[in-house]
Simulated assay, not measured.
Amino acid sequence: MAKSNNDVYDGPQWYKRFFAWAMATAAADYEGEIATRKHTLFANLQGEVLEIGPGAGVNLRYLQPNTHWIGLEPNQYMHSYLHQEAEQLGLKNIDLRTETAGNSGITDGSIDTVISTLVLCSVPDLAATLQEILRVLKPGGRFLFIEHVAAPAGTLLRQAQVGIRPLWQIIGDGCCPDRNIEKALAEAGFSNISHEAFEGPVPIAIVKPHIIGTATK
C-alpha cells in the first residue's frame, strides 16, 4: 500500500516522511498474521534477489545471510528504517536504491528472484513494471508476490473499491484498491503463474482480497 498509480498521486514531502514512519510502526499486526505465508513463499530465497518497494524492510527477515539483496525504494524516508532493520538482522549484502520498479537500471537477465508485497497496487504503470520484472529475471527466474487485489467484478465490494479510490490514493500514498493485478499478471508473458486467493489480515474490507503466488520467466 505504497507509492502511486496511473492517476499519479505524488504527495508532499511531509506526507512521504509520515507515510514512512507509519509503515515502519504500524505493520506489526499484519506481519505477524501473514508470517506463515511469507515463510513458505520465501523459503528458498538465494542468489541475486530484487525487491520492489521494500518500504521499511519487513521482508528482510526472510533473507539468507549470503543473499545479495537489491531494493528499489523511491521514498528516501524509508531508507533509514530499512538500514536499521538490516543492521539488527546482521545483513551486510544490502544494496538500496531509489530507482522505480518500472525503470530499475538493472542488467538484463541478472536476477534470480524478484519479490513484491503490497506494492503492485501502487506502481505508476503496472504493465511496464511487470515487463521490467521479466527483463531483469534470469531464464527460469521467479517473481514472488503477495498483493491485495480488486474484488470480483459486479460485487458490492468492487463497487466500493472503485468509489473510494480517489480518497484512498491520498490516504494510502497512491494505493489503488480496485487494480486487477491477476489479469495483468496473466497478460504479462510469464511462462507459468501459480497463485491462490485469500482474505488478508486487515480490518478494512476494500483491501481484504489478497493473492499469493509465483510467476516464472
Rank of each mutant, 00 (worst) to 15 (best):
Q64K: 15
A86V: 07
L50M: 08
T40M: 02
E51Q: 04
E33Q: 09
G57D: 14
T100V: 05
R61L: 05
A35R: 08
T107M: 07
N103C: 11
V49C: 13
E132K: 00
T40S: 01
L82W: 11
A43C: 08
D112N: 14
K38E: 02
T129K: 04
L144N: 05
G53S: 10
E48Y: 14
E99N: 13
T98F: 08
L50E: 06
E73V: 03
E132Q: 03
N93D: 15
L89K: 03
R97W: 04
R142S: 01
L137H: 07
I106H: 14
V58W: 01
A101E: 06
T36E: 15
R135D: 13
Y77Q: 14
E51V: 03
N59P: 07
G90Y: 06
E73T: 00
A127M: 03
T67R: 13
W69K: 04
V49H: 13
R37A: 01
E73G: 02
I52D: 10
A127G: 04
I94V: 09
V114T: 10
L120N: 08
L45T: 10
T100W: 15
I133P: 13
S80F: 09
I106P: 00
P124W: 03
G102I: 10
E51L: 06
Y77I: 12
S122Q: 08
L120M: 13
L130A: 07
L134C: 03
I52A: 06
I111T: 14
H68K: 12
E33T: 04
H68W: 08
G109Q: 15
D95R: 03
V114P: 12
I111A: 09
P139E: 11
L50G: 00
L60H: 03
F143V: 01
D108G: 14
K138Q: 13
E33V: 02
I34W: 14
N103V: 12
C121F: 14
T98H: 08
A127Q: 09
S116V: 11
